[in-house]
Design a binder for these strands. Structure first.
Lengths: 231, 231
DNA sequence: TTGTCGGCCGATCGCCGACAA
DNA sequence: TTGTCGGCGATCGGCCGACAA
């Protein structure tokens, strides 16, 4: 997926490492915290607690089941001086747009944590005013009520249609038809976050951030298996 | 699963080989027709088109997803004369009741191919008269209407509850409440077959036979990878 | 005896404004 | 500005007898 969408979905606190920057890799931390055990690692990797590396590639993905975004980071150990400009072509093709692909283009985005009313009740979604202003096409307010159908693409390319209406007393923006199908299909629950995005061509996208805390479990700062080296 | 249930569900045309009988095994036929490739076979197996074998074990199973019954058959090649009474304990424990386990006990069973009304419409099931007589407890016909709740176990031990009622003009046996939940949960469609069974203790069971023919594709005689040898 | 149909009743879904935080 | 609630109309599931094959 494009890096700009990854950043919008992952949130401000998530940072992707810069390609060709140098980092420290902590094998034991990786083993402890990874959901799946890392594979294809030479036994030599475990022989030291920390390994200086160069970030050879960073690729952006969205989980096909949960829509959660994640990174694949290719690290190459640096022996401090030799052969540092060896650039493998391996991962580069897998996650499209590693970088340099329209990355300067800006993306308008708005993230909202879903309330119980958004996720469970009546099947509607209360659109925050600034979300409607920032990413959705302006309504024709001379209609009564103002209403439009939005076609929004998720991170896998599937298109979802939402009825966007401005009504009620006092007036507010709402998603009605199409919203509950989206919620049920994605198994979204209150506390999860939806991220609406619009690229410079006006195309709209939607991503998800799952609520990682039945009891505010994991701290907000990321679980890093690497740390940036001081230059 | 017990062999008696396997036989009731598989139908009259399916035949399980007799343990210790001699058969011919056709490796190429197995490879051609098997959904999954056979594993752990010595390359020697493929060196000949047909291999004389002894049936060492036959075990009865029901697919956890489709409820379809199937067999696991352990074949041992016979070298014609030597070491024929070598009996491995391998598969014997896996599918309970290989044989000899209450196999003489009789099972009343009734199989019905589901009509569109059974599978799609209104959510009811038209119980054939003889099915009700053979396997379900008799209703109290002095009630109006005669009605009872049946608790029927599937081949994985899960219990399903059906409301069995005798009503309508003219009177007929029907399943109402509980039937559609069963149909939806098992993904049953018209053309599939349900098999109702009752053991000698009056416990009732239900199995399924899926309709293997979008266009009456496969002939009725089984796909045998072995053939009985003449004695 | 039993497959299919239309009627109909109740449950659920989901769109709505009211109201208050 | 927006979260939650009760109302209520439309839709759907599913129980029913009628009727015919």
């Amino acid at each position: 997926i494009p890096a700009k969408f990854w950043r919008a979905c992952a949130g401000i606190s998530a940072k992707a490492p810069v390609v060709n920057s140098r980092v420290y890799y902590f094998p034991q931390g990786h083993i402890d915290q990874a959901a799946s055990q890392p594979r294809n690692l030479s036994p030599l990797v475990y022989s030291r607690p920390v390994i200086p590396c160069r970030v050879a590639a960073v690729n952006y993905f969205a989980d096909p089941n949960t829509d959660e975004v994640f990174l694949k980071i290719l690290l190459l150990p640096v022996t401090d001086g030799s052969a540092q400009d060896f650039l493998p072509p391996a991962v580069a093709a897998e996650g499209n747009s590693g970088n340099g692909n329209g990355d300067d283009e800006e993306v308008a985005s708005y993230a909202k944590i879903l309330t119980r009313s958004d996720a469970n009740n009546g099947g509607g979604f209360s659109v925050p005013r600034s979300c409607a202003d920032l990413v959705f096409p302006p309504l024709n307010f001379e209609e009564d009520p103002p209403v439009q159908n939005l076609r929004i693409t998720d991170l896998h390319g599937a298109v979802w249609e939402f009825r966007h209406i401005y009504r009620g007393t006092p007036r507010r923006h709402l998603f009605t038809s199409g919203w509950s199908k989206f919620v049920n299909s994605k198994k979204i629950i209150s506390g999860d976050t939806v991220v609406f995005m619009k690229d410079s061509d006006g195309r709209m996208f939607v991503g998800l951030r799952r609520n990682m805390s039945l009891d505010d479990d994991i701290a907000d700062g990321g679980l890093d298996w690497f740390a940036a080296m001081d230059e």
